[in-house]
Structure formats: C-alpha cells, structure tokens
Design a binder for these strands. Sequence first.
DNA 1: GCACCTATGTATAATCC
DNA 2: TGGATTATACATAGGTG
Lengths: 166, 166
Amino acid sequence: MGRKKLKIWRLESMKSRKITYVKRKAGLMKKAHELSILCDVDLVLLMFSPTGSPTLVTGEKNDLSSVVQKLSNMTLEERLHRQAGTLEIIKKMYKGDNQNIDLKIFSVDGKCKIQELQNQLEQLHQKVYETNKNLRLGHVYDSCSLKNDIKEKILESEDEDEIQKL
Amino acid sequence: MGRKKLKIWRLESMKSRKITYVKRKAGLMKKAHELSILCDVDLVLLMFSPTGSPTLVTGEKNDLSSVVQKLSNMTLEERLHRQAGTLEIIKKMYKGDNQNIDLKIFSVDGKCKIQELQNQLEQLHQKVYETNKNLRLGHVYDSCSLKNDIKEKILESEDEDEIQKL
DNA sequence: GCACCTATGTATAATCC
DNA sequence: TGGATTATACATAGGTG
C-alpha cells in the first residue's frame, strides 16, 4: 500500500524506520484489536519502537498475564522446541511474493494439548458471549462508535518518541 | 477490505469466527513480520484461535548472531513461563533493569458496560499518557505460525541452525 | 517530527468451486 | 471442507506545509 511497493527489508535510515514504524504500528494495533474482537479470541501484541519504546495491545478478554499463563500451561516449550522454518517456507507462506524476505519463520500453531485449557477457554467464550448478549439487549450498543472510540485511544496513546505504558 | 464492510464485533457464528480468524491471522502475522523487519524492531504476537490453538510470532534481527537470538528467546521463554503478574518480568529481560520501565497491561474488560468500558479506557489512557516518558526497550524477534499443512515441512528442517527454541 | 493528502498496493468478505 | 477468485474496503509510501 502506498505510492511504491516496498522491499521488505530493514529500512536504511533511522528516520524512515521511525516514520514507518509509527504508521504501521497503528495499523497493526488496529488489526490485532479487530481480530480479538471479531473472533473473540485472546491476543497479545508487544512491540518495540526503533528507539526502544514498547507498545502492548491485548484483547479484551484477558490481559497479558492471563494469556501468557495460558501459553505456559500448554507446555509451550515442548511443542515449540522442534519447530523451525527457513526462507523456503516463508516464501510459501507469502505465496509468489519474491520480495527480499530473509527472515526465518518458526511457528507454534498446534492444537491445545491440555484439556483443562480447552475447558477454561470454553467457559470464557461462553461468558463473553452471554455478556455481549446482555449488552446488546440493553442496546446502547453501537459497535462502530465503540470501536472507533477504542481505536482512537489506542492510537492516541503512542507515537513520538514516547514510551507507552501498557 | 472485502465485499462488505464489517462491524467490528464478535461474529455470531463459530464458523464465521474460524474462517475470519484464519484469514486475518495470516494477514496480521505477515504485517507483524514486515514491521519487525522494515523497522528492525522486536515484537511478539501471540494469539489463540477460536478453538484455543496458540500462535506465536516474533521478529528476529538478522544482524544479531543466532546465538544471541536464541539466548534472548530462551530468556523470554523462561521468564514467561514462570511469572504472570505483569510485564515486570518481561521488561527486565529486555535490556537491563536499569531502565525506568513501568509497563502495565492495557486491556479492556469485555464484560463492562459501554460506559464503564469507556471510563476505563479513559483512565488507562491517562495513565499511559503520564507514564509514557520512561520506557526504553529494544530487541528483536521473529517467527511466524504457519499453516498446518506446511508444518510438517518445518519439522523436517530442524537440523538447520536457525532453529529457535522458545 | 506531526498531521494531512492521495495515488497505489494490500488485505479480505463473499463467493465460487 | 478447504482452497482459489473477485470485488471492495483499507492501509500506507511519498510528498506537502
């Protein structure tokens, strides 16, 4: 998107990196947030600006602690331990995109082993569902404006060279 | 994007959530990955599918030795594994503790009523604003979750030096 | 640096297969 | 069911003040 297509590779100047970071970070935050709501899932996005300022975005269901805790409970290490990717795999993932992608990708996308977690999530989903239902019944619920409100605050609370407290 | 504009709110059917999740997750992962490369920054994206399957994406700085990267990752892993209070742990792990880091979790309780939610956001925003000037972190990660159909191929490339342990 | 603008490149909701 | 296609909505690179 944009006047020109960018090669996905470290931008040379720090200035460019900063500018791009601010723009893309906003978009990424927005999308992460949308995904968590649309699909009703837990999500955590943590990133550091070129100058080191951290930014954290979490879904509305659970905070970072909870999500991390969940991951821990899944014996993450065991499953991640053996997974790794190469350039080839990345290219496949990006489909026909021959850009200069030279990062390794490695994933953790498996099914939850722990039954306990499954149940826990199931309960959470149910809980949220019921709550949302009530919210809707009590109307006053305007998904759009609500969303914009949230987004606005998110975008508003960052940028510059400031650090974000999450 | 798409034929129609979607309201950003929990999709009613599980089927829709699953489909949307798969699509958007891919896009989110790609963008998170690109951001980490373009701006040469560290980032972590963790999400759970509607059924509970976890996906982790982290960026990795090419210039750093794989050893350092692994150490970082391992450190992160260890840290995340044992604590779930706040970002206190994570922040320490990232770049010295001599930094005046004070991360807080930014989350919205989906169970709140709209007004409460907005108030909560207001307060959070205020806190963010007030604390926004003391953080200074940096690091890089990289990884992506891949489709299951490619997963096996990943496992086969285990012998490469870019394997990362989390 | 920051906010805004707009030409373009992307992501993705529906749909089709 | 899951992948591929298409029409659109969105995100954003480069430029301006």
